[in-house]
């Protein structure tokens, strides 16, 4: 893309100056972008290097220096030995709590969002717009507002302080977003598709599973990434609606960082923070390409 205009410009007599200024501008751009990238990578760099140092080295060395001797001790401690309050089991049990919480919550909210979006976009009924508007409104309610009513609700349902309770909270809270995603995606699909399938004899669910679901990969990716990031990184609901033993990894991370026994173990804190952040990073790397594609899907007719 950049080569072609350059070669045609240099072939024209007297265009050398223009060619040079183009190259200079391009380099300026790359340098700027590089600086920004470095700026954003700096904290990660500090976290990774610190987590690989021994406590001794952290005290004596500089913050941004590379580790003199690499040790995975801090990672081991963070995973299975760090103390949260009086228990010293590391992040491991809480990490699994988060997995047990996030995976079903993401799946359920995505499936329900897909069905909601399908109904609102393709099976218009009286009041569909009002219901959609109300669900959208749900996206704008701050977490803090729902804490008390939700606590009461979980109490009534008898699932307070349990992982199913947290799943319930996240499904309800995520439904607005997933419905929005799927509705906006399905609304671009011509209604004639549903009509054709009806004439062919297919029913409501058959049309959804045979025709709409196979079309939905990009938007499923968007929904999964969005929901996974939200649920995995959530702290407020996690700290409010969990009890000892059911806390998600974010709450445990906070407890590790805040439980100090004399000396602050920066390397363990850093390792624990990276462990807690890895799954979302992993999901982005795995499906990030589809994420961008899914977000812009429908804006350009394929």
């Amino acid at each position: 893309m950049t080569d072609i205009p350059l070669s045609t410009q240099t072939s024209v007599a007297g265009a050398d100056r223009k060619g040079w200024s183009t190259i200079a501008l391009r380099w300026l751009l790359f340098v700027m972008l590089g600086l920004f990238a470095l700026f954003y990578l700096m904290p990660l760099f500090v976290m990774v290097t610190t987590s690989l140092k021994s406590l001794e080295e952290i005290r004596t060395g500089s913050l941004i220096a590379l580790p003199r001797s690499v040790t995975l001790e801090a990672w081991r401690t963070a995973w299975s030995g760090a103390c949260t309050g009086i228990q010293c089991e590391g992040l491991r049990p809480y990490f699994w709590n988060s997995v047990l919480l996030a995976v079903p919550a993401v799946l359920i909210s995505t499936v329900l969002g897909a069905l909601n979006g399908y109904v609102i976009a393709q099976w218009r009924f009286k009041g569909a717009n009002i219901i959609f508007a109300l669900m959208l409104f749900g996206c704008f309610i701050p977490f803090q507002v729902v804490l008390l009513p939700m606590a009461r609700m979980l109490g009534i349902l008898g699932i307070a302080g349990t992982i199913p309770g947290l799943i319930f909270v996240h499904v309800i809270y995520g439904l607005g977003f997933t419905t929005l995603f799927f509705r906006n995606y399905y609304v671009t699909i011509p209604h004639e598709l549903v009509k054709a399938a009806k004439v062919d004899g297919a029913g409501f669910l058959r049309i959804f599973f045979a025709i709409f679901l196979p079309l939905s990969l990009p938007i499923i990716t968007v929904s999964v990434i969005w929901q996974f990031t939200q649920i995995w990184n959530d702290f407020l609901f996690g700290v409010s609606f969990s009890s000892a033993g059911t806390q998600p990894v974010t709450v445990a991370l906070n407890n590790i960082v805040n439980s100090t026994t004399g000396v602050k173990e920066y390397n363990v804190d850093m390792a624990a923070a990276i462990i807690a952040g890895l799954p979302t990073l992993f999901v982005y790397v795995l499906a990030g390409k589809y994420f961008i594609r899914g977000l812009t899907a429908g804006s350009v007719k394929g």
Partner: peptide, 14 residues
């Protein structure tokens, strides 16, 4: 007992 052909063809894309 009818069959229908649509303006946008409405073929199942997948």
């Amino acid at each position: 007992d009818i069959a229908m052909v649509f303006q946008s063809y409405a073929l199942y894309p997948t």
